[in-house]
Simulated assay, not measured.
Amino acid sequence: MRRISLRNGNGNGIPFVSFFAGSAITVRTCSSCHYSNKSIPLKDKIGVNSSNLDDAVTLFHQMVTMKPLPSVVNFSKLFKNMIKLGIPIDGFILTSVINSYCLMHYSADCAFSVLPIYLTNGIPFNVVTFTTLIRGLFSENKVKDAVELFKKLVREDICEPNDFMYATVMNGLSKRGHTKKTLGLLRLMEQGNTQPDIYIYNIVIDALCKDGNLDAAINILHEMKQKDIPPNIVTYNSIIDGLCKLGQWEKVKTLFSEMVNLTMYPDVHTFNILTDGLCKEGKVEDAEEVMKHMVRKGVEPDIITYNAIMDGYCLHGQVDRARRIFKIMIDKGIEPNIISYTILINGYCKKKKVDEAMQLFCEISQKGSKPDVVTYNTILQGLFKVGRIGHAKKILC
């Protein structure tokens, strides 16, 4: 891959050139992003044969949906031809190319390699461009590079981060366990021109809850209320989930009451959090009561609800009760998924009822599904446990 110099005609670097020079991120042409079409070569499509505006625009839309995407070289050729035809190349078009590279999970180099096209056409970079690049870096787990790019934008006033850019950085950090940095960005945002909204606060609260730091999460909830930012169902679901995992059921009841007082009734996700938490504590019958309460309130249980209760019964050796839930689920018109089958197979194997487990295992294929690696491991362990080595070998093959 060949590095492209990001400098304009008079040799002066644009504001963020020094960042690319001093960082692990470089802007390159991406040789890994190629496209080959033997019936109609792409190079012929983007050449002088594109004789009218409609053809060029149509080709652009085709190119951004190709898998894999064409190289940036091909995009550059198309853009030159579009300019000759009088079609203006703007930031929207280029950002859509960058976005396509990021969504297709190519190397971030492919997305960054579009930047020279901005320079050669005199198109200014904007917050959408950089937000898309940051998201692409996070998708490749290049957390340090994403954070460095964000810091550079803020420090050198290259562009003013908006709420969506903050949300992208904070979401990327929180999902990778960087809760302190996520909280730090919230505090930075509160001091700037762009004030956090409910979506930003929900990211921080969810990160704190997943870290088990419920006190800090509840403090953030109180801060929101003081700023007249009303919490929504997502806010409460995150905190309820954290409380359930810690077994703090009294606080869960308090939050439920608070939700009802705000005329915010729990949704299926809220109930699933409750049923899963109760099942993991061995309170499976209580979880069933919650499911019945859902139905009375007009909230239909889904596959996650049934799987949680089945798993709860199986964990406590009550596989017959789990099978009853399995049947109720089917009677309700909900098709079991591979997780449903694996839960029951595991329950039967633990009770050494391998014939029942094998019956379910065969049923998976009959229903048009495929066992996953967990299902195979479960049935193999069950067969080995009862000494049916030959049968286990056949399944392994």
Rank of each mutant, 00 (worst) to 15 (best):
C362T: 08
T275E: 03
T275K: 10
K210Y: 07
V72R: 13
V17S: 13
D211A: 14
M329H: 00
E289I: 03
I345T: 01
P116W: 06
G122V: 03
F361T: 01
V64R: 05
S107K: 14
K283Q: 08
R3M: 11
V319R: 01
G382N: 07
N126S: 09
K297S: 07
D90Y: 10
K43R: 15
R135C: 15
G247Q: 07
P196T: 02
I309H: 08
K225T: 06
N193P: 03
N171A: 04
N307E: 06
M170R: 01
R3H: 12
C209P: 03
N141V: 07
S76M: 09
H293T: 14
P124W: 02
Y35I: 00
Q359F: 12
N10T: 14
V290L: 00
L183A: 14
R155T: 12
I379R: 07
M310Y: 04
P41I: 09
G86F: 01
G312C: 04
P70H: 03
D215F: 15
V290P: 04
K142H: 10
K327C: 07
N202M: 00
S96M: 04
R2T: 13
C33A: 13
C110T: 11
S340H: 04
V204G: 02
N121V: 05
D286K: 11
I198S: 06
T95D: 15
K332I: 03
G184R: 15
A56E: 05
K175N: 09
K175D: 06
I205W: 04
I98H: 09
G333H: 00
D157V: 06
L115Q: 10
C279I: 01
D228F: 01
